[in-house]
Design a protein around this nucleic acid. Structure first.
Lengths: 247, 247
DNA sequence: GACGTTCATTGACATAGGTCAACTACAACT
DNA sequence: AGTTGTAGTTGACCTATGTCAATGAACGTC
């Protein structure tokens, strides 16, 4: 049995965004080799859309969803109250984010920059890939990584000073979206100071003051609202506090 | 092909603790129906031990491990520094905990009460169950639940007051290990005030003061070091702060 | 390229929670 | 039951961070 290319099978209803999202999804999860009917089910379950800055990526309102971020940058937010937001994580192209529909708090995946997302209803998605062990293993691997990340963040939230939190976030962003040159790293932050504050359990003012201190100390330079040049990554890492085992 | 009972096959080297741990593990994950060789691999990978209060459950020192808690109570701890511990979660019988060996911080799973644990080296465990979709799905389900829990805790750490954190923890413990009677709940806390403080990102003194306030307000009564009687669950939940969607 | 809006910075002040230091009560052991 | 060590409580004080308010810098818009 030959395996037709699901994306170029000439079905006219598949728009450019849907096509691109699925191509990236296939690349990330290696679904090409899957049984034809499983691939078809995955395609029928996934809804691809483009969302603008500030828009919510919630597609399935009453169901937990699994969102693949094909392009752009998003923040996952939970609200302790209307005026008390907690940003749980920032996400970039290639990330898979599980967004709960009804949990202890209200959740939302919000675009920081125009983004292309592919959303699946979690339960039905899992049913569809039930027998595809390879995907299940990859799913578990990613969820486990997200859990590890969340735990590390918890240490930050519970036991680190404002400066350590800000320095750690900058180093994380340097690693994820930074452009290295010489001994410097250039970062174009897609999120606002408010988003950073909400992710670190601080206020905008405190975040701003810490940026100021790091700038005064000569560790970073800021350009415009979103530009950050890390002049001394070593020293910045130092200020992020002890990280290694038993440090 | 008949499927011999792996636990009563009369192999003399299996001690009582190992037997009990595996029985509980089988019950929790339904591994009974698995292929004989997979079951054998699982059994050969799992190390069952009994640990006393304060002892670490770390078995595989250089590998991430998956620990099934068959009996007792444990805390998962990460150290930001030697004197800055963050308790990430409390665990009870039936829980599966993934403990990283080398991460951003040093991790440890420490017994709060004498416990029976069954440890697996994560990587080899996953290889062994590679084709058992049912277990992979369950593994993913549990990891996803742990992630959801961790995220909820993050909201607490980042955006809640000391009183809200303490009240929330008490309600959580009421739900997990509380004994309900009339409109009251009796809790026997297995963890110390220090553990609670480390889990909530507070100090022992602050936790103690919050217990005092809740006691003075008539919401709880304390008996001895570990006994807590929740007199007014409704009011206590209130003090845990807004939880529902968009509250 | 001036205008206005939004976002970021800076300063003055307030406070929740941390720190340090007694004191008290529980529980384990003789 | 008395003794002793550990854990918990309470009080006085301190500080990191929050709050409120004003100013200033980016960026989008006409």
């Amino acid at each position: 049995m030959n395996r037709p290319d699901i994306l170029s099978s000439g079905e006219p209803e598949i728009d450019a965004i849907t096509a691109q999202c699925f191509v990236r999804f296939e690349e990330a999860f290696g679904t090409r080799g899957f049984a034809w009917d499983v691939q078809a089910q995955i395609m029928s379950l996934g809804k691809a859309v483009e969302i603008g800055k500030g828009e919510s990526a919630t597609i399935f309102s009453d169901e937990d969803s699994l969102v693949f971020l094909a392009e752009g940058a998003c923040k996952l937010v939970a609200w302790a109250a209307l005026d008390r937001a907690q940003v749980l994580s920032f996400h970039f192209a290639g990330d898979l984010v599980s967004v709960p529909a009804r949990a202890e708090h209200e959740y939302g995946l919000i675009a920081l920059t125009p983004s292309q997302i592919l959303s699946f209803p979690t339960r039905r998605f899992l049913q569809a890939v039930n027998e595809e062990s390879k995907l299940l293993v990859e799913l578990h691997r990613r969820t486990d990584a997200a859990l590890a990340e969340c735990r590390n963040d918890s240490v930050g939230l519970g036991r680190k000073t404002a400066q350590e939190r800000v320095a750690r976030l900058l180093m994380q962003m340097a690693g994820r979206i930074g452009v290295a040159s010489d001994n410097e790293v250039l970062i174009e932050l897609p999120m606002s100071r408010g988003d950073i504050a909400d992710s670190l359990g601080l206020t905008i003012e405190t975040v701003s003051r810490q940026f100021g201190e790091l700038r005064d100390a000569g560790l970073i330079e800021t350009g415009g609202r979103s530009g950050v040049r890390v002049l001394d990554p070593e020293a910045l890492l130092q200020r992020a506090g002890p990280t290694g085992p038993h440090a």
